[in-house]
Design a binder for these strands. Structure first.
Length: 426
RNA sequence: GGAGAGGUGGCAGAGUGGUCGAAUGCGCGGGUUUGCUAAACCCGUGAGCUCGUAAGGGCUCCGCAGGUUCAAAUCCUGUCCUCUCCGCCA
């Protein structure tokens, strides 16, 4: 969420930001409700003050009659206060709904536009886009020939969108995880495995909506739990409601988790094979920083993503995400899109966002400075190190050979123990 | 799954109806003393919101949500979490 005062003081800028982000939010309604809330709050406090004073005076009453008289007075005041409080609660509930719907402000340099067609390309990776003297297959065909993925089995067991990795693909998944985690540990990240489920209020704190028509989240019936869509949720939740000393910042964490997404409304979109699935493994980077550190941290996360994909020999472009495609919490977002010969286009493989204090405010994640009174909200950032399913798509398609085999990227060989994947029957 | 115990300030830990935002200790900040350091002593030290130029004041918060009462950290109900023991189990 944005700071309430900030919204009131920058009403026009907030509205323009909503327009840029292609989000319909009634910001004026927020301002209206906030004014009303303040007024009622004031009145409510006045009544509380009076009630407290009356209560205090009862202990000092000289006579039983006086005592009874004051008790009666107390009852009356408390009754009024309760009625006003109920009204205040209603206002706050509505206010909260509108408040949550207001997206984060956007970086002044983020490209303005309604959707991903307005994203701008900043740069390209070290590896050039390859050309082939044969017709490259897509990863689904390759997986079929090399017996690497069982989509039918996945569908039988869990439904469309699930899969079994098989044979060398399993080792590739493990190798990708090790490669990414080792790279990040060298960069000063603390690795963690996280729960694959989280409480719904943690989901909401990080900006995910656990239930409702358009939810991307699987929720567990009869519980307050949901399957996580990314480790961003659980790692962000680590600091929920906590205060950290400024000198311990920034905090760099990387999490290994499974990610579960319903992909509601995604049917029909380019989603063949592993590209858009309901479950995948992901190594996620996350940082908690001071406000003045977040811009640099964002570039650091982007740099690590580039390092990881350059290291894998995967050609990619770096995309600066347009305002309309930013979602709610992000102030700025960069995606890495890898070249995928099977699609004959670039496909998103990583995404890194600077959420400034927007997530932290919802989560109540704060820091304090020694010797200063009070606390401030942290900045949070996240970035994909490796989303295994998408990385596999890119690797399989890019490293395919004329003879139908798939070479293993140099960087993964120490972990896989083999350097090529061939047909089993050859 | 069964049986208990407990959740209080950065930490430890008192507090069973008003004098409690809360003893005490530790930690932390400042000071006095002191060749230096340490020790000792003194003072200060939770958060959010709000009024005020400020000094200072008010409201709310003792896991969370309700209830009883003029009044709740304290009593009642529910709930979440933690710990111990037993059972089961990768």
């Amino acid at each position: 969420m944005l700071d309430r005062k900030y919204i009131l003081e920058n009403l026009e800028a907030v509205k323009e930001n909503c327009r840029n982000r292609n989000m319909q939010v009634d910001v004026d309604r927020f301002a209206q409700l906030e004014a009303l809330r303040r007024e009622k709050q004031r009145l409510s406090e006045d009544l509380n003050r009076e009630a407290n004073a009356v209560s205090k005076s009862i202990g000092q009453a000289k006579t039983p009659e006086e005592r009874e008289e004051r008790k009666e007075r107390g009852r009356a005041v408390r009754e009024q206060a309760a009625a006003l409080k109920a009204e205040l609660d209603r206002i706050e509930a509505e206010l909260d709904t509108v408040w949550r719907a207001i997206p984060n402000m956007a970086h002044p340099d983020a490209p303005i536009g309604d959707d991903d067609t307005c994203n701008t390309t900043r740069d390209y990776g070290k590896t050039p886009v390859p050309t082939y003297d044969f017709t490259p297959l897509d990863h689904v065909e390759l997986a079929e020939k090399l017996d690497l993925i069982d989509f039918e089995g996945g569908a039988r067991v869990a439904g469309s969108g699930f899969y079994f990795l098989k044979n060398e693909a399993v080792l590739l998944e493990l190798a990708l995880q090790q490669y990414a985690v080792n790279t990040l540990m060298r960069a000063g990240f603390t690795p963690v495995t996280t729960p694959d489920m989280a409480k719904n209020d943690i989901l909401q704190g990080t900006g995910y909506i656990p239930r409702g028509n358009e939810t991307q989240i699987y929720s567990i019936e009869n519980t307050q739990l949901s399957m996580i869509a990314t480790a961003e949720i659980t790692i962000g939740g680590l600091m929920a409601g906590r205060v950290i000393e400024a000198e311990r910042l920034p905090l760099r964490l990387c999490g290994i988790s499974h990610c579960f997404r319903t992909e509601a409304g995604a049917a029909g979109r380019a989603s063949r094979g592993l590209y858009r699935v309901h479950q995948f493994t992901k190594i996620e980077m996350f940082a908690f920083t001071l406000p003045q550190q977040s811009e640099a941290m964002h570039l650091e996360l982007l740099g690590l993503e580039r390092q990881i994909f350059d290291g894998l020999g995967i050609p990619y472009r770096v995309v600066d995400t347009a305002t309309g495609d930013l979602g709610g919490p992000a102030w700025r977002k960069y995606d890495l899109e890898a070249w995928m010969p099977g699609r004959n286009e670039y496909g998103e493989v990583t995404s890194t966002s600077n959420c400034t204090d927007y997530q932290a405010r919802r989560l109540g994640a704060r820091y304090s400075v020694k010797g200063e009174k009070g606390t401030h909200f942290l900045h949070t950032l996240n970035g994909t190190a490796i989303a295994v399913s998408r990385a596999l798509v890119a690797i399989m398609e890019l490293y395919q050979q004329k003879d139908g085999s798939i070479a293993v990227p140099e960087a993964l060989r120490p972990y896989t123990g083999f350097d090529i994947i061939r047909r089993k029957d050859a």
